[in-house]
Amino acid sequence: MLLIPCPFCGDRDETEFAYGGDAGTERPADPGAATDEAWTDYLCFHDNPKGPHREFWFHRDGCRRWLTVERDTHTHELGAVRLSRP
């Protein structure tokens, strides 16, 4: 069970959070101009590393802020945790 240091609320169990997936995938600024490939890259083809991963977590049962978290997907060691919108 992860212990995630929320910048607002402090160390909290993972059960208070919702996972939001890969933070490395950026939404095309003008989707209408994106090719099918570029659009479906964004939709379906995400980073899936065994190791360091930048990802979104939502403090659902706390401050309801989205966090951008660095986490090793193999060891679950956490790196920087910051607010997605400072």
């Binding site: 069970m1 993972e14 059960t15 991963h53 986490r71 997907t73 193999h74």
Partner: peptide, 13 residues
């Protein structure tokens, strides 16, 4: 468990 992981160790939650 609900988040990307290769750890083979599940959460007690």
């Amino acid at each position: 468990d609900g988040y990307n992981s290769w750890s083979q160790r599940g959460s007690p939650a």
